[in-house]
Amino acid sequence: MTTAAPEPVIQFEDVCLSFGGECVLDGIAFEVRRGDTLVIQGAAASGKTLILKLSLGLLRPTRGRIRLFGEDVTDYTDSQWNDVRARIGVLFQEGGLFDSLTVEENVAYPLLNQKRAPLSEEEVRRRVQESLDFVELGHTLEKYPSELSGGMRRRVGIARAIVTQPELLLYDSPTAGLDPITATTIMALIVKGRDVHHATTVMVTHRHQDGEILDRYRYDAATGRLVPAEPGTTRTRYMVLREGRIVFLGTPAEFDACEDPYVRKFSSR
């Protein structure tokens, strides 16, 4: 007996994006199904972040269709987008924290601004604390982002991304500019965020190690640590972009076996 494949969460159909007549994304077509993990790699300015921005409705495609959670969102207005965005958590490259708000206010922001049933003050406080404890920063509630280190800011960003327990999590270069130890901590939190809440995850990264961690490890709730995952169980796929086009999209095994010299730079074999 075969189980039906989960429904797609993100679908891009022949998406193109141009700025001032210059094509920066061309013919982008892929889909990410519920529970899948997609790792997007590519050289600088190859359009990786743009795919995330299109998935959040921060940019509008010049051509093609985008479907999120089964809805065609291509022509959505900003207020229609807000309902979709409430189901998505995002970590921006620099964290994107509001520097005039405290850590607590930053993490509470998505809860206080969601249109769905408003939460009581105590419930907001509880969920903020829970989310910050998740990233082991429960003691920083009153601090401002400027008082935190780069790694801590990224962790607060993760806490803010997961506080609404979204179905889809988008990470833009979560480990960029961090030392290897902090980067591994951040990746462990991303795996934990994915496995605890069973979220669909899309991550843009420069480091092949980040993709490997997402592919080869899972979070074990019993021990509270990352443990090696059975091959294929994390349903991770790789996408490689080059000058706005997808040059590779496939499983880790296909990624490792790919002979394309450009793709090999990222698989680092």
Binding site: L56, N82, V90, R160
Partner: peptide, 17 residues
Amino acid sequence: SMKVTEQIDAMRALGTD
């Protein structure tokens, strides 16, 4: 400053105009 540090994008992504 908010624009270049992606705070404006974050604001939109978090459902605020």
